[in-house]
């Protein structure tokens, strides 16, 4: 019953987020600040993880392709498919649920604990619009982060493949170009947009409706990471079933 109540409150929060908009001059600053915190601030960790996981995917693929009848270009092909279809949109989103999600929950949760949200409400400001909407807009740039993750993942694979001696540069390039289906990129970006919405709203929900003190802010951050990850994994399955099967 409590789960149903939480789900209902979550959807009401989303409706409320679009009502009574904050003045544009203030909103513009909030959006820019959130872009800096959520998008620009995540580029470093996303680049680092993508590059090295791309390399690992390539090495593992290469080590499992021990049949001499299989072309070496298959290494590049498998790396590209793994990264575009799954690693960049989903795996990076789970990491972002930890990094960006806990940041959103703890910052909004701290505002709740220190009565800053009450201060906004008393002033007649729609606090959900003021706090959550700019995060949602900032995260519409999330596909940009995923594009970088895709590029660096494939590039990391290239470096690992060529310098690890698993295949030549030409073989890897041939692999990443072979049997390319543009819809796979579309599918990846559709997932990315959905995950961006989840990343902005579920952590905000956990921060906004938390009760208690500093300890509860920590608990809310953990709960936010767990639920954001669960919802991302579930939606990943549903979207894959709908779009690819």
């Amino acid at each position: 019953m409590i789960y149903l109540q939480n789900i209902g409150t979550y959807f009401l929060m989303i409706v409320e987020m679009f009502r009574k908009p904050t003045k544009w001059c203030a909103m513009r600053q909030l959006i820019l600040k959130d872009m800096d915190d959520l998008i620009i601030g995540s580029l470093g960790i996303v680049a680092f993880i993508s590059f090295f996981v791309g390399g690992v995917v390539t090495i593992q693929t290469a080590l499992n392709l021990d049949n001499p009848f299989l072309p070496k270009s298959l290494i590049g092909f498998a790396t590209r498919q793994s990264i575009i279809l799954e690693f960049a949109p989903t795996f990076i989103s789970i990491i972002m649920a930890g990094k960006v999600g806990s940041f959103i929950t703890s910052s909004i949760g701290t505002m709740r604990v220190t009565e800053q949200i009450d201060a906004l409400e008393v002033m007649g400001i729609n606090s959900l619009n003021y706090l959550v909407f700019p995060k949602f807009i900032a995260l519409t740039l999330y596909p940009f982060v995923i594009s970088i993750a895709m590029f660096l993942g494939i590039y990391g694979g290239l470096i690992a493949c060529v310098y690890g001696g698993f295949a030549t540069l030409e073989e890897y390039i041939t692999g990443i170009q072979s049997e390319f289906t543009p819809f796979h990129v579309t599918y990846a970006f559709i997932k990315t947009f959905v995950f961006a919405f989840i990343l902005a709203t579920i952590p905000s929900y956990h921060g906004f409706y938390m009760k208690g003190g500093a300890l509860e802010v920590g608990k809310a951050s953990t709960a936010s990471f767990v639920w954001t990850s669960v919802v991302i994994i579930l939606l990943n399955y549903i979207l894959t079933q709908m779009l690819l099967s």
Binding site: T110, D118, A119
Partner: peptide, 15 residues
Amino acid sequence: RAEIGMVFQGSALFD
């Protein structure tokens, strides 16, 4: 509400 000023117990300044 725009005509109301409020001083909270913990000040509630935006940090």
